[in-house]
């Protein structure tokens, strides 16, 4: 099994400008009105009067134990051994939306033809672009920098082999990462912060 790739996100550096989601749509030719492989939301935290708004940018987390892969009847979703990227074979997808129920992060999207597509960590371009591609390479070795990483104005998103991302992250963020199925390290600089686990 090759080195697993993932994302790193630092909400303190995110200004909620949507440059990541817009550039993602451009790179992959997604519907500007509908498709959201990467979503940015301002999430209100705290209780009145101590309320603040936290911008969060999120895409497919390329989960280590991808629940979408388990439920897909056609084996259209695959967690790649070589780099851990979760890809979709759109030629076999029947559009049953089962993955939509199973995904904890709302990552699968369905186009007009009803077929699922989602973030492929830019190992290819366009829907289904990641399927059947060679293992992910770093930028210096010729691999494409993910559009969101390339265009993030605050440097809030990074992508790479998980071991490298861990070196950049705080101990708390890494501890949090170890407990989550998502292949994303979420920086947790603020006091009392434990990033975004999905369980209630």
């Amino acid at each position: 099994m090759g080195e697993q790739w993932g994302f790193y996100f630092d909400s303190d550096k995110c200004i909620g400008c949507h440059a990541c989601s817009v550039s993602c749509k451009q790179r992959h030719g997604r519907d500007p009105e509908q498709d959201e492989w990467r979503t940015v939301k301002n999430v209100t935290t705290g209780e009145f009067p101590d309320v603040s708004s936290l911008p969060i940018s999120m895409s497919c987390m390329h989960c280590s134990d991808a629940p979408c892969e388990k439920v897909c009847p056609c084996n259209s979703i695959q967690k790649r051994e070589e780099d851990g990227i979760v890809v979709v074979d759109r030629d076999s997808c029947i559009g049953c939306h089962y993955c939509g129920w199973a995904c904890p992060y709302g990552a699968p999207t369905y186009d007009d033809g009803g077929i699922m597509s989602k973030c492929n960590l830019c190992i290819g371009e366009g829907p289904g672009g990641g399927y059947g591609m060679p293992p992910r390479e770093e930028q210096e070795d010729g691999g494409a920098q993910p559009a969101c990483v390339d265009n993030c104005v605050g440097g809030a998103i990074e992508a790479g082999p998980v071991s490298e991302l861990k070196e950049k992250a705080s101990t708390k963020a890494v501890e949090q990462f170890e407990q989550e199925p998502a292949n994303v390290i979420v920086e947790a600089n603020r006091e009392d912060t434990n990033a975004f686990p999905y369980e209630a």
Binding site: K70, P73, S92, G95
Partner: peptide, 28 residues
């Protein structure tokens, strides 16, 4: 009728539904 993908693809289930961890494949 609920499938949003190409209708005829679903009729290929004997070859397509190969994921035995999915209740949709087992149930079919």
């Amino acid at each position: 009728a609920h499938l949003s993908g190409p209708f005829l693809r679903a009729f290929m289930f004997p070859v397509k539904f190969t994921n035995w961890t999915s209740w949709m494949a087992i149930g079919t």
